[in-house]
Design a protein around this nucleic acid. Structure first.
Lengths: 344, 344
DNA sequence: TTGAAAGCGGTACCAA
DNA sequence: TTGGTACCGCTTTCAA
């Protein structure tokens, strides 16, 4: 980092203590109760207009900001919806989903917070989240067990929603079965007459949660047919792709499901460099239906993934919060469908 | 969403009230003070081993989890580092940076929290953040003014760090001048003998913060030379790219800086479909040095961006927290360098 | 070694 | 219409 010469320090010495509602009350010449009534627009209590004005002015002048922790403590609950921040850089698909969700929950007057729980695992993380007493917790992926759910519930979470491959006892579930993505691809390739099918499994850590189910899905689609499946570990790296492509002919595969569109692009380019014709020698299918697939030549066949709308999930959370004793719902929310283009 | 039949409700009725340290004390037969001492390993006080055990067992049995809000309130401060959650899906580069940062701050015993402040703008958002009384705030992009910084400081934030194009009064700054990215690309193209240079400006909302400076950087690099710059609005969309490519010859450009590698790929493919030869007719330069650039043919020239390590930024935050009265530092942290490949 | 109690900031009940 | 005050859960000083 390159240090840059600093501008001279500002002349105004910062006020050194945080103003509280008592300070506001003092300045406005009223009680703390009145301040609270005014600033919260408490409808059960009528405050005269001049008093309101004085309170507002005092708050403004002091730069008063209420203390969320104090409010939470007193109220016994917060409106915080907590979700762990994703541990791996997440694709545009999922990123978009998270954004929508945040927006929709914001509309419902929840505060969405992503907790950076790096290094913490499973129920250990659950404890850290529970300390914040969120009103609801949204946990993508695996790693949260029934004990974790219980910890959160005991800590006052009125809703725990898991987003992943399997239900967890006591929690609502958004079942995102990535197996169906693989299943889609596998069925498609089989229908196209392919019988020796490779499946790329990324070596990047943190992707197993998706790659395993996708592989299993292909296996499931092909089980009991005359087709076979070969697992192809691959790092997201040109050299690794070239090496894989170099032994392609001896692998004797006539098709490959490449985990997603990015890996598909990587592998497809390597195969083309090797002189493998696509789709004639080998069919390639990606997943996620990203823009790049449309731009490749041949155009990349892919599995389009339909995620639930952020609004729907926000509504689910809201319902769960309002009725915490309802039996947990489970929803299947990952729609997968083949987009057949020219590479398969 | 497809509803799935629920499993029967679990037999165990959930304990309906959140256990407090008083409950633990009661069960262990000690005072709340002792519970606090034991659970926090307070070194100033020696507690007998049998007592410690009893407290731990009681806490375990009740599933006790401390109440962060209460602790914060009592302590007068928290160890929460707050940053707004990015409003647009963010690329792998920046995503990686955020992850590193979270990890590094976690190592320093801070709790990193991304606040989903959708719809809130500037100082309005600052107020929402201030309610959480974070010990430090990390604000990417623009939109936070000096008043916002003041609000946060008054609310007890010991460090405010902006990450963006310009300094903000009172805050530390990580200057990420995306102008240098454009400057790099512009200089490179000029050095290659190009004189009519187009610059792609994405139409996607939320990207202006990066696209404007990149455009300006190109302008700056070419200012006073015999080269000219043309602004090319472009949506991330095949049709838009095709339309732009269709009028390419009449635009009379011999080079284009495509904002980033993804837009470059989009445009390059459209140009090639149109019969424009790259780099002979038109040179193309991307940015961000993504994998896809290496896979394109011709291989895409790009601007490699060097971000600071998460560790460095975490250390900066930590220093600032420890010495809140130090004059704000400003660091220039965006390194840009051309990776010349075959498209320019 | 342990306990009693004050107090952090805000809310809401009850009284005036 | 407004004020006094108890209380939320936890930490920490002081006393025992």
């Amino acid at each position: 980092m390159v240090q840059i010469p600093n501008t001279p320090p500002p002349a105004s010495p910062a006020p050194r203590s945080v103003p509280t509602s008592a300070d506001v009350a003092r300045l406005a010449g009223v009680s703390r109760a009145t301040v609270s009534y005014v600033l919260n627009n408490t409808s059960a209590v009528r405050i005269s207009e001049p008093t309101r004005r004085r309170v507002h002015e005092a708050a403004e002048e002091l730069g008063y900001v209420p203390h969320a922790a104090a409010r939470t403590l007193r109220a016994g609950h917060s409106r915080m919806v907590l979700m762990p921040a994703p541990a791996v850089p997440v694709g545009p698909l999922y990123g978009q989903f998270i954004n929508e969700l945040q927006w929709a929950l914001g509309r419902l007057d929840y505060t969405v917070v992503q907790h950076g729980s790096v290094g913490l695992h499973g129920d250990e993380a659950a404890r850290a989240w529970a300390e914040l007493r969120p009103v609801a917790v949204l946990v993508p992926g695996i790693g949260l067990g029934p004990e974790g759910v219980a910890v959160l519930k005991r800590a006052g979470a009125r809703a725990v929603v898991t987003v992943g491959p399997a239900r967890v006892e006591g929690a609502h579930a958004l079942l995102m079965d990535h197996g169906s993505v693989g299943h889609c691809a596998g069925s498609h390739l089989h229908a196209r007459g392919r019988r020796r099918i490779g499946v790329v499994v990324p070596q990047e850590p943190g992707l197993e949660a998706f790659s395993r189910p996708r592989l299993d899905g292909v296996r499931r689609a092909l089980y009991g047919t005359d087709a076979s499946v070969a697992e192809l570990p691959l790092a997201f790296d040109e050299r690794a792709a070239a090496e894989l492509a170099a032994r392609w002919r001896e692998l004797g595969l006539d098709a490959v499901f490449a985990y997603n569109d990015e890996y598909a692009m990587l592998l497809m380019c390597a195969l083309q460099d090797e002189g493998i014709r696509i789709p004639d020698d080998t069919a390639v299918v990606g997943a996620d239906d990203l823009m790049i697939g449309r731009l490749l030549r041949p155009r990349l066949s892919t599995v389009h993934i339909e995620l639930p709308s952020g609004r729907d999930l926000a509504d689910l959370v809201d319902r769960a919060v309002r009725d915490p004793d309802a039996t947990p719902e489970a929803h299947r929310v990952l729609g997968a469908s083949v987009v057949a283009r020219d590479s398969s």
